[in-house]
Nucleic acid binder design. Structure first.
Lengths: 232, 232
DNA sequence: GCATATTATATTGTTGACAATATTATTGGC
DNA sequence: GCCAATAATATTGTCAACAATATAATATGC
């Protein structure tokens, strides 16, 4: 079981596959529009419009819709069309449950597979500068840091199966994560929790890191429950 | 948080959606052939053949392929065709990891959502008759019981999100589960483990049940590691 | 006979046209 | 003016023909 050493982390997480088939590009762009709320839940999406906009055949749009439907990002009603999936509070709670165990697993595997130095970059990233940014409500900086954390963990965990599951879930909850960040106190709490997780990971204590990551998701779930009237 | 009472469990788990579009029927039938090893991993599947066999257009077959690919059951290589996904040992280990946490979650939620009587049918099913059957290597009876257990748990857990993830994973590992059952000693151990889990669930001890379920998957993983030369 | 080039065949990829269905607009009755 | 029935439009669903690519078969040079 060889452990991987520290690798350079790219600064910004751009789209993972810039090249590919027409269908792939469509899936990627539509995914982006959905997770950024550019196309909010409930939006109707017409095949013809997209086909014209992207200069592709309607069949390609159709294929892309099939993939997005399978990923739970859109809903297709026969002969009526496709709309961006609208999640209810129940669905979010379900997603918190699976996130709790899956992200816990992610952190545990990541810890087991790495040397302590692997986490230096992330520990530095979650330092005083970011703390100041969070206290000043610079949510973009915090979101970017969280994305980096995820990326580093998934890479270290080294499980394509797990990566696939987490990617799907991530897409579904991203817009909610952004909103949850606005709740006063949540961001700074999340920041401290991530500091603790990183500390445990550097110490190589996989069980502790997993437990802290699960606490992190559970507390996010609590905040969501408390404020879901404002969040949904 | 209302708990659900005991419900009648159907005897045999047939295909969940007998009706639906042509594409749905195709997906269902191909899924069946793949998980039963009727189409073993590596098998090439040609669009024309299936279109003719099912009396549908090639487009429908193509749509079905898209869905099966997204579910990880087949692999499509551009301009070359589709083959039944071939899993390596690494993938199985990854699947064991996610099964451990997800099935643990399933059992925990199921316990929390039910009254003790809900489990009477399953406890009876995992009784002396089944123990005898297992000791006599009647694997079909055991597989059917396991399927019942899964079904009862997923239903009680009441999370569509979790159900979706587990269904996907189940399809991918079913044929391996069948083979693992042949390893001398594994089936009877699994049987006893399920008895223990059911006991904890009836007692309403969700944490204990989750822990036992995770032990169950971890031990299956151990057996797989030990015998993977014979199993793959 | 063997390796390479070339043709022929089979298979997948893509498209535009048409059918089926739903949505909107129009008409007619009261 | 309001409601129902009907026609017009728009949108999705399906298909069969064609293009692009890969595989198999044949021919060619040495």
């Amino acid at each position: 079981m060889t452990k991987r050493n520290v690798t350079k982390l790219t600064t910004v997480a751009s789209n993972p596959k810039p090249t590919g088939s027409d269908t792939d590009r469509l899936v990627d762009e539509l995914r982006r529009r959905i997770v950024t709320n550019e196309m909010p839940p409930g939006s109707r999406i017409r095949e013809n419009e997209l086909a014209e906009e992207f200069g592709v055949s309607r069949s390609r749009v159709r294929d892309a819709f099939g993939i997005l439907e399978e990923r739970g990002l859109i809903e297709r009603i026969p002969n009526k069309g496709a709309v961006v999936m609208r999640l209810e509070a129940d669905s979010f709670l379900e997603l918190f449950d699976v996130r709790e165990v899956l992200e816990g697993l992610m952190v545990r595997l990541a810890t087991q597979n790495t040397e302590p130095e692997y986490w230096n970059d992330l520990i530095e990233l979650f330092g005083d500068d970011l703390e100041k940014a969070v206290s000043e409500n610079d949510f973009n900086a915090y979101m970017a840091a969280i994305a980096q954390f995820r990326k580093g963990c998934i890479e270290a965990a080294g499980s394509d199966t797990l990566r696939g599951l987490l990617d799907d879930i991530y897409d579904r909850v991203l817009s909610m994560t952004r909103r949850l960040m606005l709740v006063p106190g949540r961001a700074s709490e999340g920041f401290r929790q991530h500091q603790g997780i990183l500390q445990a990971m550097k110490e190589g204590d996989a069980e502790k890191a997993e437990g802290l990551k699960r606490d992190n998701i559970r507390s996010a779930r609590q905040w969501f429950l408390k404020y879901n009237d404002f969040l949904l």
